[in-house]
Amino acid sequence: MNDPSTSQMQNVLKDRIKDLKNETSDLMKEIVGYIDDGNMNECLRNLGNLEDTLKNTYELVDRLSDRIDELERNVNELKQELNKLKDQVKYVKFFADYRDWAKIFMQLLIEKLGGTDNWHKAETGLHYRNRNEPMTEKESECVERLTNLLKEDTDIGLGFTDIKLLLEVRDTSNIMFHKNNQTSREAEMKLYAETLPDNLKIYKPPLKKAFKTISRWRSS
């Protein structure tokens, strides 16, 4: 047999309290009458009945309180799951909106660097440099070329960390995404306006810089 629902228990409690008021009123009248008549045995019996009625009502209140506590816990758990789901949706939508623009930025960067081979050597060189290991002569040359390229637009402030984050945006799996037909201006304005979960906020500054750089490099 299923346990009663909280609403059912609330209704039962209301009815019991109403009955309790009536029973208490009747018992008190009887007790007063028995006291006046000197019939203490009946008086004690009615006091016992009153005690039982109160005890049953208190037990029902305790059960209802436990059920409400359980319900509150379930609601809180559902809220937490809902918030997680909202963040996941924002995560997917964020990369759907900006992945292609990160890709365009990297294509322009590679073109200005002199091609894919130079980019790969610069990327490999940075990998070794970040670990305090020696680079080859060609890797060092390509890293220096990349450094100088970024310095040309000091007002934008692109750095190696920005490029690393833009690569993460670019390389996020295609499986997650739908087609997106935003213009670069629409995407840039959306980026400035939208509020992001904490785990996505690190991508916002490099994307802002990427949009500025795309606009400048494509017009030069």
Rank of each mutant, 00 (worst) to 15 (best):
M1W: 05
Q8D: 11
K14D: 06
D15F: 08
L20K: 03
L20Y: 14
T24S: 09
L27K: 01
I35S: 06
N41T: 14
G48W: 01
N49S: 10
L50Y: 06
E51T: 06
L54T: 09
K55N: 07
R63C: 03
L64A: 06
S65R: 11
E72A: 05
K79P: 00
E81L: 12
N83G: 00
N83D: 15
F94N: 01
A96Y: 00
A102K: 01
A102S: 15
I104C: 04
L109E: 04
I110G: 01
G115N: 05
N118V: 04
H120Y: 10
A122F: 03
T124N: 10
T124C: 01
G125L: 01
R129A: 11
N130E: 13
E133D: 05
T136N: 03
T136M: 05
S140D: 09
S140F: 03
E141N: 10
V143A: 03
R145C: 06
L146D: 02
K151D: 10
T154I: 12
I156V: 15
I156A: 08
G157P: 09
G157H: 07
T161R: 10
D162G: 09
D162P: 08
K164M: 09
L166H: 06
V169L: 04
V169W: 01
R170T: 02
N174T: 08
I175A: 13
H178A: 12
Q182A: 14
R185T: 14
E186M: 11
A187D: 07
E188Q: 15
L191G: 07
E194Y: 00
E194A: 02
K201D: 10
I202E: 14
Y203E: 08
K204I: 02
P206M: 04
K212R: 14
K212T: 07
T213L: 11
R216G: 01
